[in-house]
């Protein structure tokens, strides 16, 4: 049997490479009984189509940035609560608690959760230096989700909605002056051509999740399922390590490109923590009991 696996990001992106290794692992592990063919760069289904496509069996397996779907269920955005975690290790602790819950939500959506890999931590990109929230006032900020729009509102920035494909053009033409994203995004898009500053604030670490259509999963033999689980565990570990490695690599790349890359000032960090607390409360109000259980358990463990 052959399964097509749509993926949203470029073939050279580490997520896509980890996905390709996973696909090979399964194909080899099952002796070719189940062959997984990856389709990176959204060449089969594009990012915003992938979840629906796998849910309804148009593809049997796929990878998607989970938090893109938090309009459907706030739990999909648990990895994107600003300033709740501030490092890979803290994020992994959060995900140990949240992962199974998100898996249940995916299950309700006819999806079997396999594994997920975090993106490098999100930081602020600015055209001009910023030392405090007051400096952010009126700056045109790229927002692409409810959470990033709210973040702009709370910091007094002006949210402008810019699609991923238009990021470079928006900075080049001054339609936007800042964004929040990982070092990887800025490195991939060479934003140093337009922006001068990257502040490491480790706001959150969004995850790409790989999931299987539930009916397709249930149709697999136990041996195949075991191979898939082994390969998923390997991919998860490989992905985490590569995400960590890639973080430093991209930050160095931004510096080489001519950007100032530094930790945010203490003032800024304190102010952002306050905003983060507000947004965590707002998320909790939406996510209800299930969300509260995750955040409480996480805080209790710290």
């Amino acid at each position: 049997e052959k399964w097509d696996m749509p993926m949203a990001y470029a073939a050279s992106n580490f997520h896509s490479e980890v996905g390709a290794n996973f696909a090979k692992c399964v194909t080899d592990g099952t002796g070719g009984d189940l062959e997984i063919v990856t389709h990176p760069s959204g060449s089969l289904f594009s990012g915003n189509e992938i979840k629906r496509a796998v849910q309804t069996g148009q593809a049997n397996i796929g990878e998607r940035l989970l938090s893109a779907h938090q309009n459907e269920n706030p739990l999909y955005g648990v990895d994107s609560i600003p300033f709740l975690v501030s490092s890979f290790d803290e994020h992994e602790k959060l995900w140990e608690i949240a992962g199974p819950k998100v898996g249940e939500v995916l299950h309700e959506d006819n999806l079997h959760y396999l594994y997920s890999v975090p993106w490098p931590p999100q930081g602020f990109y600015f055209r001009d230096p910023v030392q405090s929230v007051a400096d952010m006032k009126g700056v045109k900020f790229r927002s692409y989700s409810t959470a990033t729009a709210r973040l702009a509102e709370l910091t007094g920035m002006l949210p402008v909605q810019i699609e991923a494909a238009e990021i470079s053009q928006a900075f080049a033409t001054g339609v936007a002056d800042s964004m929040i994203s990982s070092g990887a995004t800025g490195y991939d898009r060479k934003v140093w051509e337009h922006l001068g500053y990257f502040y490491e604030v480790d706001a959150w670490l969004p995850r790409n999740a790989v999931f299987v259509n539930l009916d397709a999963w249930n149709g697999l033999s136990d041996e195949t399922k075991a191979v898939m689980n082994d390969c998923a565990a390997k991919a998860k570990a490989e992905g985490l390590q590569r995400s960590k490695d890639y973080t430093q690599f991209t930050l160095d790349g931004l510096k080489e490109g001519g950007m100032t890359v530094e930790r945010a000032s203490d003032t800024l960090v304190e102010e952002l923590k306050v905003i983060g607390a507000t947004m965590t409360d707002e998320w909790l109000a939406e996510a209800g009991e299930a969300g509260k259980a995750i955040v409480d358990a996480y805080k209790a463990g710290n």
Partner: peptide, 15 residues
Amino acid sequence: YWSWKLNEKSQGLDA
């Protein structure tokens, strides 16, 4: 029909 049944929402700011 399935968009309605699955409660599929826009992934953008409009929801």
